[in-house]
Simulated assay, not measured.
Amino acid sequence: MRATIVGGGIGGLTAAGHLIRHGWQVRVLERADTLPARGTALGMWPPALRALDAIGVGDRIRSVGVPQSSGAILRPDGSTIARLRIPGDAILVSRPALLNALASDVPVEFDCTVDSIPTDCDVVIAADGIGSLIRDQMFGPRYRARPLGMAAWRGWVPGDTSTTTETWDAGALFGITPRDGGLTNFFAAVRVEPGADDDGITFLRTRFGGWHPAVREVLDRIDSESLLHHDLYHSPALPSYVRGNVALIGDAAHAMAPNLGRGACEAIVDGVALGRALTGSSDVEEALRRYDRARRRRTRLLVRGSAAMARVATTGRGRRVRDAALYVLR
């Protein structure tokens, strides 16, 4: 059996790894010229780690990543809204380290631009991200990802940290976590109109410079070379993740706000769920329907939940009630 995977990111490489382990012939077509050398830390929750185990890279991620068991939600003055325990094992790992592990046994064809759905294979897996051209061809432009009304800045600074915190205020948040390599990872989100101009570090230091010392210390160490900036989007509810012999996975199917930390995890789970469906049946279209039933409802709930959490974290109203509820539910 032959699969063509459009997109050599997290979901595409995971699906490729599973299919290759089960004897499939797989082509992975990636438009970039190499795997990225930059990228922020990603949380690997237990379902994602189990999926990584299924393709033989779970232990490698555990060895390079940073275990995460607790965290805190703070106010801009540094006072605590709630302290959180993270159930089960969870790992923070940088995107480059994760992609390198996923690509270790997967041949990737770089510099490949795909403008139409491939036809020379048994199944096409569209892992071409938030701006998926294949999704457009399957369902049309009405199902493109929509602006969340927020922009994000992510990066890392020298020196490590042993704590995980997220600081919430009206219209903005700032997170600080450990990262592999002895670095400190940070992420910021601000409610802005899509496409709003900013001047990077100056904007962040102006917006967050009055916050508590841990935030200011990170701001003082930011290097523009490591700073990533983009608008945030989330997907509308698609009528299906499959059509004919084509399946959507990851952000092509269910782009979500980062506030639950599940985007990368769900792309990994997608890849293994799809791989299991395909290797468990000789009927491709039946296998794809099984994948759709297994993943569409759950990921739609996460898309809605992530957007709701973004609103809760950056709300300008009812913060005392929110904080009290978080303290009780911690």
Rank of each mutant, 00 (worst) to 15 (best):
L74R: 14
R60I: 03
T14F: 13
G78R: 06
R83L: 14
T34C: 06
I130Y: 02
T34H: 07
S63N: 04
V26G: 03
L84W: 13
G17D: 13
H22P: 04
S104E: 14
I91N: 04
A97R: 15
V114E: 08
I134D: 06
L35E: 10
C121H: 04
I130E: 00
L148I: 09
D89Y: 10
Q137H: 09
T14S: 12
S63F: 04
A37E: 07
V157A: 08
F139N: 07
M150V: 05
V93A: 07
A152L: 09
S69E: 10
I130C: 07
A54M: 06
I73D: 11
L98V: 10
G23Y: 05
I81V: 13
P141E: 00
G129W: 04
I91M: 08
P87T: 02
R135I: 11
L19P: 02
A72C: 01
M150L: 11
A151F: 13
A97G: 15
P36K: 08
T119Y: 13
A32V: 09
T119Q: 14
I81P: 08
D53T: 03
G39H: 10
A72W: 02
V106Y: 07
M138W: 01
R154S: 06
V26W: 02
G17H: 15
I130M: 09
R50Y: 04
L35K: 14
G88F: 11
H18M: 05
P67F: 08
A90V: 01
V106A: 04
P76R: 02
V66G: 09
Y143I: 00
F139K: 11
Q137G: 10
M138Q: 15
I125Q: 05
L133M: 01
L98F: 11
P47H: 13
D120T: 13
F110T: 14
G43R: 14
L13F: 02
W24Y: 15
G56Q: 03
I134A: 06
S79Q: 01
A145Q: 00
I81G: 09
I81S: 04
A97P: 14
G39S: 02
G129I: 01
D136F: 12
G78D: 03
I134C: 01
A72R: 11
W45H: 15
S63W: 02
S70G: 09
I91Q: 00
G56R: 10
G17F: 07
D89F: 08
Q25H: 12
R21S: 06
P107A: 14
P76E: 06
L84C: 12
D77H: 13
G39A: 07
L133R: 11
R83S: 11
G39V: 09
D136W: 12
R50S: 05
L52T: 12
M138C: 14
T34A: 06
L74E: 12
V57N: 05
T119H: 08
Q68F: 12
R50P: 05
L49A: 12
I61A: 03
R38I: 13
G65V: 03
G43Y: 09
